[in-house]
Nucleic acid binder design. Structure first.
Lengths: 355, 355
DNA sequence: GGGCTCTATCTAAACGATTAGATGCGAGAA
DNA sequence: TTCTCGCATCTAATCGTTTAGATAGAGCCC
């Protein structure tokens, strides 16, 4: 016999007052309550194990204290870590977090937003993947995009300075003596990875504008035979090739094996994401190609796992926690200061630095 | 001028009916509605962009359609992947997921449960870490534990057959010719890792009961000097030592380096978790110790990332998705069948199998 | 003592949906 | 014609809070 949870009315009855007084006590309400009464109410509440019903409160006060967090995929460590920090920041501000994985699909992202709105969330944090398209900003509640989002819209977008990160990475590889620096981008441009690619082109000497023909090495998620083509970026030094693969480890692993088989592996490479860098490491290891001796590698995410690969990845570390904090501050109109701290280069082994 | 979202009453007014009829239409309600009226209502609802307020619905019907998911830490890939699958399973059953990270702390776990109960969740999925203690099953709503939980309580516990997994791992290393198989456990016994450790002791020949003195190698999270002690398990063959470290990559990495420095590295090792295995790999790589040639390694989680380490980890793969599905089915009283499928051995490179 | 101001408290109307019971009406049965 | 049945619909109570407005006393001043 599980008994019905007790309500404000139960407490009021037990304390011999009205529900209003109980409410005032519970919330340090808008009106004062005599000390003696307050004691009685508190005692009765404790006695009955009273727990305020947030649903009823939300209905009345039009604020649920719940924020919706839309992600591409929490099992991707980059998004997973971001999600964790966002949840932490919200918890600290006494908000609850409703999560949903959109699985890189714009429709599912829209669908999730709809469901969250129906649940009357107070706000939305959207960690949009670049594949999710620039869905129109959701109406009705405040929203913040993290990592990537529609520029110029009403909703702020919180993202680190990707250009600076890339410049640092290129400069670091040059310090190790590499004149050519290849870049492993995503399957298509757009989103933060697109920005990173542009920054790389600029750093490496190519004209970032619409230059002449440029052929690329491509690997899809499928392990089937995919033609590998590459060529120097127009204006760049030979060897500074643009590579592409899906964002999965599998795809980057497959691409790496293929490049090795063809003798086309660059000497220095910047991977747009940790997932891809880990795939490259995996492929190189399997083929017996030593990193960093034969391939110097830098990755641009800097998720926690990048520190424990073999060899440890040199990364430009995205300030994920700072980004999450700022996003939450902006959402709750606490104003999150200016730009989040820039990504910082963390030299480890994979670029050629000593262990 | 953002206009107030429209309500049932608005739709009723527009359609020239009462709110009851609108409700019946929206829910294919408990009573039928004339076809013509239904059309008018639907048209009005579409016109006004009506979206039912789930909060109000929840208040009246005492069911929110929201399930609380309590985790230790979503940024740990094992828990992260589990969380993703749980969310997916709930989404499929048309439920929303409220998440919270307890950060391995029993108090915070209890605190989260309290907050979720206040939010009137319909149920709780608790992915408890073994450090979280056996908190009393929360009252009032159905709950399911995943990975680890209080045995014998009213709440079911969904976990894979860890013993079988360990037996497979030991057997596989024996097939590779290793007579001794060491085990890297967590900082203390209890939880699934405790079960795994016991199963290893049994498989390796030691008495699983309270045997005589057994000294162990220990490494904390701190990189400071920690004494390393080890000895054969009573009754086991020499070399089948029990090692311990925190569940972090850092701790396992540090332990590995220390063992190597002392010349005390085993030839074959089973790591209780992927995180630890990755730390071992990292430490071994840094010291130039080749895996699997000098150290054969099997890990017991089988998270997605285990496939792309260098070398790829041989694992016994926990059926995370099946566990999540079953937990959700149990929670929603759909009955999730019997035990989840056992963990399956996935041979990769780190144990000594060919690539 | 009557008229004030304060303070502490109570009453009751929201919030937006669900749903049992009441109502109205046309068709068929007697 | 009158009664009954069934259908479509309406009315209104309800879920548990919040909070504005009403009320009741106490203390104070003239």
């Amino acid at each position: 016999m599980t008994k019905r949870p007790s309500t404000l009315a139960d407490v009021a009855r037990a304390a011999g007052t009205s529900t209003a007084v109980v409410s005032y006590v519970i919330n340090n309400g808008p009106r004062p309550v005599a000390a003696a009464t307050r004691e009685r109410v508190l005692a009765a509440a404790a006695e009955l194990g009273y727990r305020p019903n947030r649903i009823a409160r939300a209905l009345r006060s039009r604020s649920t204290g719940v924020v919706g967090l839309v992600l591409a995929d929490a099992s991707n460590p980059y998004f997973g870590a971001l999600a964790r920090y966002v949840e932490q920041a919200l918890e600290r501000r006494d908000r609850l977090t409703l999560v949903g994985n959109a699985g890189y699909s714009p429709e599912r992202q829209g669908h999730l937003v709809e469901r969250f709105l129906a649940a009357q969330v107070d706000g939305l944090v959207i960690v949009s993947s670049d594949t999710a398209g620039d869905s129109a900003a959701p109406t009705g509640v405040p929203a913040v995009y993290v990592h990537h989002g529609p520029a110029g819209g009403p909703a702020p977008v919180v993202a680190a300075d990707n250009r600076a990160a890339v410049r640092q990475a290129v400069a670091h590889l040059r310090e190790h003596g590499h004149r050519s620096v290849a870049f492993l981008a995503g399957p298509h441009d757009g989103g933060p990875v697109g920005v990173r690619r542009e920054a790389w082109e600029a750093a490496v000497g190519g004209d970032p504008g619409p230059v002449g023909v440029r052929r690329e090495a491509v690997a899809g998620g499928e392990p089937g035979p995919v033609g590998v083509r590459r060529e120097a970026v127009a204006g760049g030094e030979p060897g500074s090739v643009l590579l592409r693969s899906d964002y999965s480890r599998a795809a980057a692993d497959a691409l790496t094996r293929r490049l090795i088989a063809e003798g086309a592996l660059p000497r220095a490479l910047i991977a747009a994401t940790d997932e891809q860098a880990i795939g490259v490491l995996s492929g190189a290891w399997a083929c017996g190609v030593p990193v960093p001796d034969r391939l110097a590698l830098i990755s641009l995410d800097g998720t926690p796992e990048s520190a424990y690969t073999a060899p440890a990845l040199t990364v430009t570390e995205q300030p994920l926690q700072a980004m999450a904090e700022q996003a939450v501050d902006l959402l709750l109109s606490l104003d999150g200061g200016a730009e989040p701290p820039a990504a910082a280069l963390v030299p480890r082994r994979s670029c050629g630095c000593a262990a």
